[in-house]
Simulated assay, not measured.
Amino acid sequence: MGIYQHNVTLNNGQATTLEAYKGKVLLIVNTASKCGFTPQYEGLEALYKKHKESGLEILGFPCDQFGHQEPGSDDDIAQFCTMNFGVTFPLFKKTEVNGPNANPLFVELKNKAPGLLGSKRIKWNFTKFLVNAEGKVLKRYAPTAKPSDIEKDIVKLLG
């Protein structure tokens, strides 16, 4: 299954597919509001504002599988992200990234860009996946990778 065939649901309940982002460079991130890495929302938003006109889309997928750090509803999450970090990039419905109920998009991302030592499992919030404009999953970044650390890779893809 290609990356663009995945069905996803925006935070507001609107169903779509990743086809809507075809031709864009994507940074797909599993996020959380009560995590030590939560301040990365600020860096992600800065990247988005700086490069969105050049073809970057950042897709945020809130996840509550790591230390119960995303306990709120989809509305709570959207409000938190907007009020605290001015997030304007798309946020999706809360999802699972590991286990039997893992979102198929994250299953594909993990298979195409395994982690350290070939590990498929996502280890924590704010794991990031870079996808080129043709839909090829290129790289996985650890939660500790700051958005600014990824910028050079994004700029190369944006041409």
Rank of each mutant, 00 (worst) to 15 (best):
G86L: 08
P114K: 07
N11E: 12
F80T: 05
A142K: 14
L138N: 09
N111W: 02
P62R: 04
P62V: 06
C35W: 02
A46K: 15
L10E: 07
A142R: 13
G159E: 12
I77L: 12
N111P: 03
P39M: 10
K112T: 08
C35H: 14
K52L: 00
W124I: 09
H6C: 07
N101D: 14
G86A: 09
T127Q: 09
K136H: 13
H68K: 14
N7L: 12
R140I: 05
K52R: 15
I3N: 02
C35E: 04
K110E: 02
K120F: 11
C63G: 02
M1G: 11
P143V: 05
N98A: 02
F126Q: 08
I77E: 04
H51C: 04
K93F: 03
D149N: 12
P71E: 08
T17E: 12
S148A: 15
N7A: 12
M1R: 07
F61Q: 00
T31G: 02
G67Y: 08
K34Y: 10
K93Y: 00
L59H: 04
L117I: 11
P39D: 09
Q5E: 14
C81M: 05
T95Y: 10
I154T: 09
K24I: 10
P90N: 15
K139A: 05
K128L: 02
V131R: 10
L27D: 00
E96N: 14
V8M: 05
N101C: 01
E57R: 14
